[in-house]
């Protein structure tokens, strides 16, 4: 069930000037949240930012023994910047968990899956990694970022999935292969690796390229899509993306996790 509750900030961890994690107290959202789902967070009760912002539930965890959940944030505007400025203990309104999660219930051993992260798109894949590990489903991570310092949560991914299953690509070559994340996934597929399903989250150009790769390889995908939204629960109809069926898909309720084949990437 979706709840609207005020949750205290347990801790804020800064990675660099633009990136941070916010840990919120669990409330009733943490236990209900599935990988790929999101929350709408009101960063303050002022008029700037005015609307809530959507964040993937990055992980369900504890902070000094207190149950909570984590949001991984890149500060890109007034809303995301405001979220990083709250003191620990500040209660903030949170609505969730929202949206359609990554489909994982149908996985069974010996299925093998891949996770593809681009930049801040790592967020929903942390909780997914945790749940896949609990289920004993082997998963390979392909994670691309601008440079090594922007590749976040590496210890968590390597703990859940095994370091040998985590591959990286950076624009400057400071970590892993120099190039794009879709290149290293493409190489793995060309080398004969196959996956039951590929889960991905990242920027639109990554999604577009990946959709083409998966289509060609005949591999099923599930993309955690992003779009600006005012409400998060299917009312404002602001967050739509064009579908292949000619309709517009409401990302907050039909997604955010949708197969790439649902979207008309030529119109995004």
């Amino acid at each position: 069930m979706v709840v609207n509750e005020a949750l205290r900030i347990l801790r804020t961890v800064r990675y660099d000037a633009a990136h941070f994690s916010v840990f919120l107290q669990a409330g009733s959202i943490a236990a209900a949240a599935k990988p790929g789902q999101f929350v709408m967070v009101q960063a303050g009760d002022g008029l700037r930012p005015y609307l809530r912002r959507a964040f993937s539930v990055a992980d369900v965890t504890t902070v000094a023994g207190v149950p909570g959940f984590e949001l991984v944030v890149r500060a890109v505007g007034v809303g995301t910047e405001a979220l990083g400025r709250f003191a620990e203990g500040t209660p903030i309104p949170v609505l969730g968990p929202l949206g359609v999660p990554f489909p994982i219930d149908d996985l069974k051993q010996p299925d093998r899956v891949a996770l593809v992260a681009g930049g801040i798109g790592l967020a929903p894949l942390v909780l997914l990694s945790r749940r896949l590990a609990e289920r004993g489903i082997p998963a390979d991570l392909f994670y691309g970022g601008r440079n090594e310092s922007e590749v976040l949560k590496r210890p968590d991914f390597e703990r859940f999935l095994g370091a040998h299953r985590c591959r990286y690509a950076t624009d400057d070559g400071s970590l892993g292969k120099k190039g794009r994340v879709t290149d290293i996934l493409g190489s793995a597929l060309e080398a004969g690796t196959s996956y039951r399903r590929v889960y991905a989250c990242g920027p639109t150009p990554m999604f577009r390229t990946l959709a083409g790769i998966l289509d060609k390889a005949g591999i099923e995908g599930s993309f955690a899509l992003e779009s600006e939204m005012a409400c998060g629960f299917g009312v404002c109809l602001g967050c739509v993306l064009p579908g292949r069926d000619g309709r517009f898909h409401t990302i907050c309720t039909e997604g955010p996790c949708l197969p790439p084949t649902a979207i008309d990437w030529s119109r995004v």
């Binding site: 930012p49 809303g79 939204m229 005012a230 602001g238 967050c239 064009p242 517009f248």
Partner: peptide
């Protein structure tokens, strides 16, 4: 077709 919304100061 999107984009359909954007936030503005004290509104959208």
């Amino acid at each position: 077709p999107p984009p359909r919304i954007c936030e503005t100061d004290a509104g959208m």
